[in-house]
Simulated scan of single mutants.
Amino acid sequence: MSHRILFVCLGNICRSPAAEGVFRALMPNARTDSAGTAGWHVGKPPYGPMQAAAAARGIDLSDLRARQFSAGDFTRFDLILGMDAENLAEIEALRPAGNTTPVRLFTEFALETGATHVPDPYYTRDFDGALDLIEAASAGLARHLGQ
Results as ranks from 00 to 15, higher is better:
19 A>K: 00
45 P>M: 11
99 N>L: 07
8 V>N: 05
110 A>H: 01
65 R>Q: 15
3 H>V: 11
65 R>I: 13
20 E>F: 06
21 G>A: 12
137 A>V: 03
69 F>N: 06
30 A>G: 09
24 R>E: 14
84 D>Q: 08
73 D>G: 01
71 A>G: 13
29 N>Y: 14
48 G>H: 09
104 R>M: 11
129 G>V: 08
66 A>L: 05
81 L>Q: 07
17 P>S: 04
116 T>L: 14
93 A>S: 14
141 L>A: 03
18 A>D: 03
73 D>C: 07
66 A>C: 09
124 T>Y: 12
115 A>S: 01
39 G>L: 13
13 I>W: 10
107 T>S: 01
106 F>M: 06
27 M>E: 10
8 V>C: 15
116 T>C: 05
44 K>R: 15
109 F>N: 04
47 Y>K: 08
57 R>Q: 03
7 F>Q: 00
97 A>L: 14
58 G>W: 00
105 L>A: 02
32 T>Y: 01
139 A>P: 04
145 L>A: 13
131 L>G: 02
105 L>K: 03
39 G>V: 11
14 C>H: 08
64 L>I: 02
59 I>Q: 14
10 L>P: 02
16 S>H: 00
22 V>H: 03
72 G>Y: 04
137 A>Y: 04
52 A>N: 10
8 V>R: 08
26 L>Y: 05
75 T>P: 07
40 W>R: 12
72 G>S: 03
127 F>C: 14
117 H>T: 10
2 S>Q: 08
114 G>N: 08
59 I>T: 09
61 L>F: 04
80 I>Q: 09
145 L>S: 09
140 G>Q: 10
21 G>F: 12
46 P>T: 05
124 T>E: 11
35 A>G: 07
128 D>I: 07
32 T>F: 04
121 P>Q: 13
10 L>T: 11
4 R>K: 10
134 I>C: 00
82 G>K: 13
61 L>P: 02
55 A>K: 10
9 C>K: 03
96 P>H: 14
25 A>T: 08
67 R>C: 02
55 A>T: 05
93 A>M: 07
79 L>V: 09
94 L>H: 07
29 N>E: 15
57 R>M: 05
91 I>R: 07
21 G>R: 05
7 F>N: 01
21 G>K: 12
94 L>R: 15
22 V>M: 03
34 S>Y: 10
1 M>N: 06
112 E>R: 12
5 I>Y: 00
